[in-house]
């Protein structure tokens, strides 16, 4: 084995390079802080592999270009940050309805409205509850390091193709802007049969990709079919546990906050407090069954988020009745320090 290639890159560039490692040849986007290094990198490097980069006139156009490229079976991506992701929701709904794969990156910032450019986890509901109209789901992956930005982006393309479904990477400004050394993989992009792809009806019957079903019963059937698919996605559940073996209390956090609170948990351990971490990596499907089983051993959970309370609902829905679920939320504006989160752990730990 040759020595792994390590490079110092920022989180956004890691996503762009993950996309290229996954064989993504098409990118469509519109500039917005704090994710501009993604389009900047791809505008420079996609031409190397005969790929296509389009800076579209809007986020709406970008998502629909993604829909079009995805419809041909090509690996394609768009990225944005919160306000731009709101604009993409219609397209995501159509992609889910027409079962068109594609990767959407949200390096989220703070809202509501124009909000600000500081990190936030205020888009959890939007990402995991559909965001657009209709009863659909998007696979949502939440990295917590620059390395995971890279690895999960590669994975996102495989999941999108496997399930014929949009997949979202939900990061934030912190994960986009920070630099860390990462190990680059010599990735062989996954190969998926795409008999449904629109390529011109040569030597086969014409086919179409659509989400409109007006004949009686058809839409019901279509929705049940999608539901079955969402059930199957549970096979993809991914999570991390840290120091939970003997824990009296388990902190539940995702993304950048999970990263910060790991240090706080170490501080708590040094003080003799038996605290561990449960970090969902797939936010949809949420690791509810794992958390439920954990709640049979541990009865105290502490959800910590960079918002005023979103994922905590999933924690409450997952754990057994009788478990205590505490919450600490931080609205956008400042990033909590390990010390501050340690103080919050101390307040609820007993």
């Amino acid at each position: 084995m040759s020595k792994p290639k390590v490079e110092l890159v920022n989180g956004n560039e890691a996503i762009a390079r993950g996309a290229m490692a996954a064989g993504c040849k098409f990118y469509f986007g519109y500039p917005i802080t704090p994710q501009n290094e993604i389009p900047e990198y791809l505008s420079k490097h996609l031409p190397d592999i005969d790929g296509t980069f389009i800076q579209a006139e809007s986020e709406i156009a970008s998502i629909n270009m993604l829909l079009g490229a995805g419809a041909t079976g090509a690996r394609a991506m768009t990225s944005s940050s919160s306000p731009g992701i709101s604009l993409k929701q219609e397209g995501i709904s159509y992609m889910a309805g027409s079962e068109i794969p594609g990767v959407i990156v949200n390096m989220s910032r703070s809202g509501p409205g124009l909000g600000g450019i500081s990190p936030s986890q205020g888009d959890y509901f939007q990402a995991t509850r559909g965001g657009g109209h209709g009863d659909y789901r998007t696979i949502v992956l939440a990295p917590f390091s620059v390395q995971e930005n890279y690895d999960l982006t590669i994975k996102a393309f495989d999941l999108a193709d496997q399930y014929r479904n949009p997949v979202m990477i939900l990061g934030d400004a912190l994960l986009g802007q920070m630099k860390e050394p990462i190990i680059l993989r010599d990735n062989k992009p996954g190969k998926f049969d795409k008999p449904w792809a629109l390529t011109g009806a040569k030597n086969r019957k014409p086919q179409f990709l659509k989400s409109l079903y007006l004949n009686e019963g058809d839409l019901t059937q279509h929705n049940w079919k999608l539901f079955q698919k969402y059930q199957q996605m549970k096979a993809e559940i991914q999570y991390e546990t840290y120091r939970i073996e003997d824990a009296d209390m388990v902190v539940v956090s995702f993304g950048s906050v999970a990263r910060i609170i790991k240090s706080s948990i170490n501080m708590a351990r040094d003080k003799g407090m038996k605290v561990g971490l449960f970090r969902p990596v797939t936010l949809y499907p949420y690791p509810e069954e794992i958390l439920r089983r954990l709640s049979q051993k541990v009865h105290h959970f502490f959800a910590v988020e960079l918002n005023t309370g979103q994922m905590v609902e999933d924690v409450k829905l997952s754990v057994d009745k009788g478990s205590r679920v505490d919450f600490y939320g931080r609205p956008p504006g400042s990033i909590p320090t390990p010390n501050e989160l340690f103080d919050e752990i101390q307040k609820v730990y007993r």
Binding site: T33, P34, I117, A173, Q177, M178, K179, N266, T337
Partner: peptide, 28 residues
């Protein structure tokens, strides 16, 4: 880890960044 300021903070002519070095996984 290396964390620069970004966006509007870059305007106005000041720049800063934060570097954290450790033997262990870095939290924040």
């Amino acid at each position: 880890t290396y964390m620069p300021v970004y966006g509007v903070e870059m305007r106005g002519g000041t720049a800063n960044c934060t570097v954290v070095i450790s033997d262990q996984e870095i939290g924040s």
